[in-house]
């Protein structure tokens, strides 16, 4: 019997790949020539002419070789690939800007000291943003503690209890998710700070952030819980579970990773919020671990203040702060993901 070699006829052969490469670079050369000989100018002209030339060449080749359907397919493929590239460019560009401008300010003392003994014009070896990192983490933590239970319980009311107030609450949650952050800040300012506490603190910031976070957590959780099959709830009930035990033992565990996504989206909503913190936290330059007393710094506040100060050192600090903020958010996201996907040890 002949030896049979495993092949993958549905994948492009080496020859196909080579032709693909030739078409790619051929289109590049063609677009350069086009820009050189015509009135078209600028980077955008290169990109646009390249996209159309590349799509046209691929389509013509496929049409002559395989026919109309394949021609359409390859032209659309080119457009989609370029569209994907186009959407990545802004993200990549933002990250690139932050990293290239921010890395200069990253020094060990940035993570070890605060700005209480430094002025905006001090060299970068003086002062740091420890107070801002700590403040941001404490405020996000506070907002998490307040919003996650309230948000998930709201979602449970909407999906499990379905009481008389389901419609109005759903409407309120949707309306609240569009509240501008400055409004949340002003609300806490007028409802809590002026009449009651009469002073700024990190906790006031957490309260305002919660107002922004709760609707996000509640809406996403509601959608996730809605995906859990009704079957499972009935099965739990049919085994003699009360509604609460069925929800706690079956529905919530089944929705765990989706709920974690809801929490992550909630963090994403508030992590970079600046406006309410400007109003409520006082934005001190001193390291402060107590969210209930004295001003508390935060990364967005620090960035805003440093840019306002305007000196070269301060602007570099601001960019470094931005880089740190991005990294802190990234760490929060990744750890939330890891927590949610970890298998139950058994």
């Amino acid at each position: 019997m002949n030896e049979v070699k495993p092949t993958s006829p549905w994948k492009p052969s080496a020859k196909d790949k080579l032709r693909e490469l030739v078409t790619f670079f051929g289109s590049m050369v063609a677009s350069f020539t086009l820009v050189a000989v015509t009135e078209l100018k600028g980077k955008l002209a290169y990109f646009v002419s390249f996209v159309f030339i590349y799509a046209a060449i691929s389509a013509i080749y496929s049409f002559r070789r395989y026919g109309k359907a394949t021609a359409k397919d390859s032209a659309v493929k080119v457009f989609i690939a370029c569209g994907a590239l186009l959407t990545i460019i802004p993200i990549a560009s933002i990250l690139q800007t932050i990293i290239s401008k921010g890395y200069k300010g990253i020094r060990p003392n940035l993570f070890l000291s605060d700005m209480s003994m430094a002025t905006p014009t001090d060299p970068l070896t003086n002062g740091g943003l420890l107070h801002a990192i700590v403040g941001t983490i404490i405020m996000i933590g506070g907002a998490l503690i307040l919003s996650v239970p309230i948000g998930i319980l709201t979602a449970l009311y909407l999906t499990e209890i379905k009481g008389r107030f389901t419609q109005p609450i759903r409407f309120l949650v949707q309306a609240m998710s569009g509240v501008p952050s400055i409004v949340a800040g002003l609300f806490i300012l007028s409802a809590v700070v002026y009449p009651i506490t009469k002073s700024s603190s990190g906790f006031m910031g957490s309260l305002a952030l919660s107002i922004l976070m709760i609707p996000t957590v509640a809406r996403t959780s509601e959608e996730v819980l809605g995906l859990i099959p009704q079957d499972l709830r009935e099965a739990g009930t049919a085994l003699g579970g009360t509604q609460w035990r069925t929800v706690a033992m079956i529905v919530l565990p089944a929705a765990k990773s989706g709920l974690m996504t809801a929490v992550i989206l909630g963090i994403a909503r508030i992590a970079g919020e600046t406006a309410p913190l400007l109003l409520l936290t006082g934005g001190g330059d001193r390291l402060n671990f107590n969210p209930f007393d004295d001003p508390m710094g935060s990364l967005p506040f620090y960035i805003w203040k440093s840019f306002l100060a305007g000196s070269e050192e301060a602007v570099t600090r601001a960019w470094a702060g931005l880089l740190v903020l991005v990294v802190v958010i990234l760490i929060l996201f990744v750890s939330a993901r890891i927590l949610s996907t970890r298998k139950v040890a058994r």
Binding site: D231, L232, G240
Partner: peptide, 21 residues
Amino acid sequence: TKIRLQIGMVFQKPNPFPSMT
């Protein structure tokens, strides 16, 4: 809940709880 304990039920579609072994 006591009633449903005494009268058990098996459903049309198999529905083991997904988060459990």
